[in-house]
Design a binder for these strands. Sequence first.
DNA 1: TCTTGACCTCAACTTTACATGAGGTTTTAC
DNA 2: GTAAAACCTCATGTAAAGTTGAGGTCAAGA
Lengths: 159, 159
Amino acid sequence: MKTRLEQAGISPTLSVGEVARRAGVSVSALHFYETKGLISSDRTQGNQRRYARDVLRRVAFIRVAQRVGIALTDIAAALATLPATAAPTRADWARLSAAWRADLDERMAQLKKLRDTLDDCIGCGCLSIDRCRLRNPYDKLAGQGAGPQRLWVGRRSLN
Amino acid sequence: MKTRLEQAGISPTLSVGEVARRAGVSVSALHFYETKGLISSDRTQGNQRRYARDVLRRVAFIRVAQRVGIALTDIAAALATLPATAAPTRADWARLSAAWRADLDERMAQLKKLRDTLDDCIGCGCLSIDRCRLRNPYDKLAGQGAGPQRLWVGRRSLN
DNA sequence: TCTTGACCTCAACTTTACATGAGGTTTTAC
DNA sequence: GTAAAACCTCATGTAAAGTTGAGGTCAAGA
């Protein structure tokens, strides 16, 4: 007997294939995220994955964060602050979001600076000297956990 | 006999070590950039690299571009539009800059959108549906060359 | 029931962007 | 003129973020 959700085509849990299709990522990527602890699943008797619906939110978050250049390990660290047991509340997400706000602000500022001054800055040669703010590869990260941390904005870790 | 520049500690060409120190990258990275065609050098009798001073500008450009998530192959393509023979003029850099402007604008907009709406968008679940603009992984790239091209903003190529 | 498509694990491969080390040569500084 | 520091090439290694494939199991529809 199907629930009303199921009759409406909405099952209470999702298979990998469903999540892959709906989140726009590959099945292997989902497996990979699971090995890295970014998402988790229950299993059926037959050992197949069944995801709670909030996995879609998590995966969306992962992709968006990756898109702004944040490494999976850092995303994992952030996601680890969400309750693993139940669907995170809005407040949980908001807290996580706040933790990243300073970092996102920094990235934005850098990008804006790059965009606004690329002509002048490169043209005048200031990119070639050490003091140019665009060239300074380090900056502060919002205290995520304890103490100050370093952020290499390129492709490295936040830690 | 040294030139006045040399007497002032400014030699007309730079060794790898010098470039590495001044540009804040490793020697092996410079070698690597050279194999990928992002920079080039003359050689001494003894086969050691000697760089023209504009290599500093190029390397600075490379790092900044990488920082905003652009892949080396794309950076190489952009740098290939600069004159290889002589030091690029300000206009050369400006042209290159203009070619990237739309892309940088897009990235900025995405980042801003992410920052501004992370709370609401994630909290309300809109990140989990397909229509959310933050989740749309494709967008247009400023015509760099001929015809429209696709941009996967994550870590993939611009092409 | 039975078959076909979706899943499972695990190992091996891929790409990007370098780093490291061996073994040998050049420059520079005294 | 010699020794140390810097450089050279080439091969191999590394980390991140997956992908691909083999060999086998599960589940849903006719």
